[in-house]
Design a protein around this nucleic acid. Structure first.
Lengths: 349, 349
DNA sequence: GTTAGCACTCAACGTTTAGGAGTGCTAACA
DNA sequence: TGTTAGCACTCCTAAACGTTGAGTGCTAAC
């Protein structure tokens, strides 16, 4: 039975009014308030009856007898799915930011997180792109000193990774040059899946005595791309914004929440979940217990996936109280995504 | 007039007892407690007289009449300077961490911050090394595609910086090779100060048509070294530890503190101060108002400078309540520094 | 179906009360 | 002269109490 079946138009109006006022004030909403706030011209008594029904149906609840009503998780869900309509929310400044430095992704991400946190007054998180089906663009080996080789790996979207690997066998400049050419010829333009055993063994044969270097480099390419070197690239900003919302800012809760934001590995679960359940528009809303992170059960989380290049995906998330301004957050995120999209499309070649 | 002149031995004993108990309990210390805690065999009344004196001298104070005494900033200062003696505090795990990956500094730093926070139960911060008098080790230009040049700059201590610069003039592989040789010949082994106008103009002449590239590269070298691309590399950890100390964990204070930890640019002031006032042992203690960051006036901060290579310095800081366990923190830091030192010395060549 | 009316509930807040920890001071003591 | 016992006093804390007001549920009348 769908929500619409349970609720007649009047109930929807009232529910809407309750949620809207609660979003604004953060205080339980009473029947008298609704009676005045709506243009239904109903007495508070009638509203009370309706509210009683709505409570029975699970859309609203009372913090205690003789208090007004507040939305339940289900109420919020209904609001987000059925009632709400997005505003037009512009995120300016983004264009400047991006145009300035497409070449330093992690800086861009940090700034974007900050911007989002400031714009929304909630906490923001953003994960660095995970490059699954992503093409290798360029590899460069350089001899830094007699014993160390610098490996620079550039992936589509201009993500750069460096690592040092030790040199075991003799390696002169010419050999290095050949190795560079070999690696680039063999690997450039390939996705991680396309670097299969065939490609690898062919390379090793060609590399001759330096096949161990090839091995190491491939290892680095793999870890670099899988990104599983316990360096979870997740940036957060505006954690302290949660202090603006009394329902989250008592010691216990605040500590746990901020702790979660700090300890990025917990956020990874969230990101994985987003990626696995992949909704149509790419924007997803988690309300209360719906969130895959238990410490955030008193929060709502809005996530969006962004895409830098082909298969180069990351996740943005806004974390705030359940009574967050969903309209604003959703449209801010949507705006950000389209801006990102158009700008990055232009930048592609 | 020095502290020692003002305080006879008995006063010192009492002051010491007061501070020690307060550090442990966090509660104002009464005269009776001291009378029992010390082996002075004095009645509480006598202690009271002494305490009254100590208060007049500014070493302790009362939160309100008819409460026990708590140390004043001056009292803490006296404790840190004169009374305290460091424990032996081992930070294990560090060796493993460092040996594993000297090549990825920022990861190392993040982990070190985390380790410190966990070991001490306070908040930890750590700034990436600022490379002033530091030698350039290696430069590599590579053509990523037709319009972009990848610049990789390696500095002593294996700090790696990448940037992309656009290509304006025609540049074939041979030209690129020559440019690479030119840059490395001219710049390798030089400190930032040594790259003066003479060096620069000589290079430009040799670079001929590609002097614009040289220009850009030098610019990148400069910003990379100065590190003033608004990417302040300061890592923090354990911010939520402050919730363990009631005197810091009320909404207002906690919010400001965590905000400061999050907004790294405020911490920069602290680091600058540390570097400018450079104490002998390299470890410094800021108590309350002494801290150059106003938002931390209710805290104490213990900082230490670490050194990776020649002139490659960074700062570590522990932020906690004024009643922090100075002995533990100081010795933990000192232990960390010596460990770092010996391990890195070994790694040097 | 709607509404006025009324008794009832309960969090929030201010006041009061009692208790206790700790002080400062005085006077006596060694 | 330094030390100590004794005592009145202060002030925080926590519990107990009363008051207020917002809001409800229910009933009866429209």
């Amino acid at each position: 039975m769908s929500d619409r079946d349970q609720l007649d138009e009047r109930k929807v109006t009232i529910l809407k009014a309750i949620i809207k006022t609660y979003l604004e004030t953060g205080e339980p909403v009473g029947s008298r308030t609704i009676s005045k706030y709506t243009d239904l011209n109903l007495s508070s008594a009638t509203i009370r009856n309706e509210m009683s029904d709505l409570e029975e149906l699970g859309y609203i609840m009372q913090p205690h007898t003789s208090a007004g009503r507040i939305p339940s998780d289900r109420g919020y869900r209904f609001y987000v799915d059925q009632i709400m309509q997005e505003k037009e929310e512009e995120v300016t400044e983004i264009k400047d930011m991006i145009l300035k430095r497409v070449d330093r992704v992690e800086l861009l991400l940090k700034q974007m997180a900050k911007l989002l946190a400031q714009n929304t007054n909630y906490a923001a998180m953003i994960s660095a792109p995970q490059f699954h089906r992503n093409k290798l663009k360029f590899i460069q080996l350089s001899k830094v000193d007699e014993e160390k080789l610098l490996v620079v790996i550039v992936v589509e979207g201009n993500i750069i990774k460096n690592t040092m690997i030790p040199i075991h066998t003799e390696l002169d400049d010419e050999g290095l040059l050949n190795l560079n050419i070999l690696l680039n010829n063999a690997l450039n333009g390939l996705t991680i899946e396309e670097i299969n055993l065939e490609v690898i063994s062919r390379m090793k044969v060609q590399a001759g005595p330096h096949s161990d270097v090839v091995d190491r480099v491939l290892g680095e390419v793999a870890t670099a791309i899988r990104g599983d070197d316990d360096d979870l690239q997740i940036y957060t900003s505006g954690a302290t914004n949660i202090f603006k919302y009394p329902e989250l800012s008592d010691g216990e809760r605040a500590s746990k929440l901020i702790g979660t934001l700090e300890q990025k590995d917990l956020l990874q679960g969230l990101i994985d979940d987003v990626n696995s359940s992949e909704s149509g528009s790419g924007i997803q809303v988690y309300i209360g217990d719906e969130a895959p992170v238990k410490t955030m059960k008193d929060c709502s989380i809005v996530t969006a996936n962004y895409e830098l290049g082909e298969g180069l995906r990351g996740t943005i998330g806004i974390i705030g109280p359940k009574r967050m301004d969903y309209e604003k957050v959703l449209s801010t995120l949507r705006n950000l995504m389209t801006q990102l999209d158009t700008i990055l499309k232009k930048d592609e070649r």
